[in-house]
């Protein structure tokens, strides 16, 4: 496996660092932030439906599978969030069973206030059992997994919210793909779901608030 094959990961790290570095300068120091909905810690639960392909000695799938993902982390600045993500899905029929999951780092770029593009890198695992008459074939995979997700955030009650509100609850249509490349067995998964995300918001002493709301 060549170095270039993993150029994605290699590039992602310096790109992420540069991105954060460039845009984080305003959020450093003790400067106060304008209140916003995507602030503080976030936790997402995402039921997903997935199509999974297994590329081993022969190709299997795609199979429909269902499962869930989670994402948790913190808003670093207006443009970027950082945290962890994980999840697992199961595909099952009389002829096969596939359990596939991941766990790793999760960085989210926010080009607009409601659009989020997540990049993930971490550990992936897969367990594929195929049943033929008389033979049960088991393929396992353990290795690196990369992912990309896109979500569009719809905040509950956003029309009536105070301009000074920090944090909130969002329901977001969510799509993405996970790729687990390997010389032996690779897994490709494409999923859609709805992310239910709770943002805790920032404490008052970190927000740029009028005095009557600051204390």
């Amino acid at each position: 496996m060549s170095v270039l094959k993993h150029a994605f990961t290699l590039l992602m790290i310096p790109v992420a660092v540069t991105f954060i570095g460039v845009f984080s300068s305003t959020a450093r120091g003790a400067e106060l932030q304008k209140p916003a909905l995507k602030q503080g810690y976030y936790f997402s639960l995402i039921p997903v439906g997935e199509a999974v392909l297994v590329d081993s000695s022969e190709n299997f799938g795609p199979w429909p599978s269902v499962g869930g993902q989670f994402r948790m982390g913190e808003e670093l600045n207006r443009w970027f969030d950082l945290g962890l993500s994980g999840g697992a899905t199961v595909a099952y029929s009389d002829n096969y069973r596939l359990i596939h999951g991941h766990f790793g780092l999760d960085g989210t770029f926010k080009p607009t206030a409601v659009l989020s593009i997540g990049l993930q890198a971490g550990l992936g695992f897969g367990d594929f059992t195929r049943r033929k008459p008389g033979i049960t074939e088991v393929i396992g995979r353990f290795g690196a997994t990369y992912g990309i997700t896109v979500s569009y955030d719809l905040f509950a009650g956003s029309r009536h919210r105070s301009p000074h509100q920090s944090g909130g609850f969002a329901m977001s249509p969510y799509i993405g793909a996970h790729i687990g490349p390997s010389d032996v067995t690779s897994i490709y998964a494409f999923f859609v779901g709805i992310a239910f995300t709770r943002w805790t918001g920032l404490p008052k002493n970190r927000l740029d608030l009028p005095l009557d709301e600051a204390f």
Partner: peptide
């Protein structure tokens, strides 16, 4: 090799060796 100190007390470190 490097460590970058991000806002809100996050630190991201990386190391790559060939």
């Amino acid at each position: 090799l490097g460590s970058y100190s991000l806002p809100k007390n996050w630190t991201l470190g990386f190391r790559w060796r060939v």
